[in-house]
Write a protein that binds this DNA or RNA. Structure first.
Lengths: 214, 214
DNA sequence: CTGTAATATTTTGTACACAGAATTCATAGT
DNA sequence: ACTATGAATTCTGTGTACAAAATATTACAG
């Protein structure tokens, strides 16, 4: 059994993101380091290291003497993040090998079509969506870009659980993914990139209707 | 005198980037935390916090048990970073207020024209270039995007000092900045964005000729 | 009853300590 | 001379301790 040999700070970061997905933390609340560390069964040192990482990704905010808190959600920030990821994913897709994309297009189509039961755990749904995007970008050779996309998406996780419950948005998302896959199958990289951009813009609109006006 | 009231980790991060600009550290070398902490006159704790931040920005790498080291420079990574920043700056410019851009265009032109003496400190030259880009993007209202650009650019600082010494690249850079400013003056945001993209592509080519083939 | 000053409590930011992993160095065997 | 083995050393990763700042509480004056 290959016991966990990764720095605690990384394991803690992952665990905090997992809890965030599950809605354990409500946005805007302060973090009590001692309490959270005790809860996780670690000391404050690696916990703080994880918190600093998450702050760098925009998941947390910090201010002198007041420690860390979960960054509040806002329509404006969500819009900003969507714009950014849309541009970055488009860049990644543009820079991918067209032949490779053509090869994986059927798999992308399949994934898009058999989207999970709308009543499934939100977590399952999110993971399915992530899987599709990951596969789509798996042909990008710009490693830094892929890292950056992962990092920015971590900053969007605070919004993911807002999508819970309704099924109509999921179907539209799936439709749009199909469209991207079909364009890739035809070998039209340019159009696929535009369809991906549209997907983000539309997805943003769908989500915005669920974020309360502050 | 307003004594520094920021977390040490931030001051340390800034100081490390400053030293990086001055070429104190050579890429690829391991960091000895105790020695560096002693040199800076702080303890290892806030130093490590700064190192973790820098690792998140791609300035450093880390591996289990072996600590941190300055990420090695490579033509591939530099190309990747340039692509990313080009896309992000283009996005930022597109999203700016056209009227505001028209207003600051003359100042941009002035800044581009009186570029500093080529024999000046590299640091001065870099700062001048940064100033121009900062002003150009000052009309962007996507705050997350601006933060992200700053962060990615921090990851490029390892390459900046390679530009030292020659003056021809600086003049070309200035020419291209002028062109962007002129297009903004005309109110042609689309063309200006393209010119900015070209500026990054060309700047990348100029730099690549100075990065040794690994 | 409200606002303010003083005090107590909590919590962060930083320093320090220690165990264990990684590396270096030395020694022995082929 | 070279590889392998093991001891010694160095350094990181994590836990703990403490001082100063922030927050909460109490006491008091208007």
């Amino acid at each position: 059994m290959p016991i966990e040999r990764r720095p605690l700070r990384e394991q803690i970061r992952d665990e905090l993101l997992r809890r965030l997905d599950r809605g354990y933390f409500s946005a805007g609340t302060d973090i009590n380091e001692a309490a959270l560390a005790a809860d996780l069964g670690v000391s404050r040192t690696p916990l703080r290291e994880a918190l600093i990482t998450l702050a760098g990704e925009g998941v947390l905010e910090s201010s002198q003497g007041r420690g860390f808190r979960f960054a509040p959600v806002s329509r404006k920030e969500f819009r900003e993040l969507c714009e950014i990821v849309a541009a970055l994913e488009a860049l990644a897709l543009e820079g991918s090998d067209a032949a490779y994309l053509k090869k994986i297009a059927p798999e992308l189509l399949r994934l898009a079509r058999d989207f999970p039961d709308p009543v499934a755990e939100h977590q399952v749904i999110e993971r399915h969506d992530d899987e599709w995007h990951d596969l789509l970008l798996s042909g990008c050779r710009n490693e830094r870009l892929l890292d950056l996309i992962t990092s920015v998406k971590a900053g969007m996780r605070r919004y993911a659980h807002l999508l819970a419950g309704d099924d109509a948005p999921l179907e539209r998302e799936a439709d749009e993914h199909c469209r991207v896959a079909e364009l890739l199958m035809k070998g039209d990289l340019r159009a696929a990139t535009e369809a991906l951009r549209d997907n983000w813009v539309n997805g943003m609109a769908r989500m915005l209707s669920r974020i309360p006006v502050e």
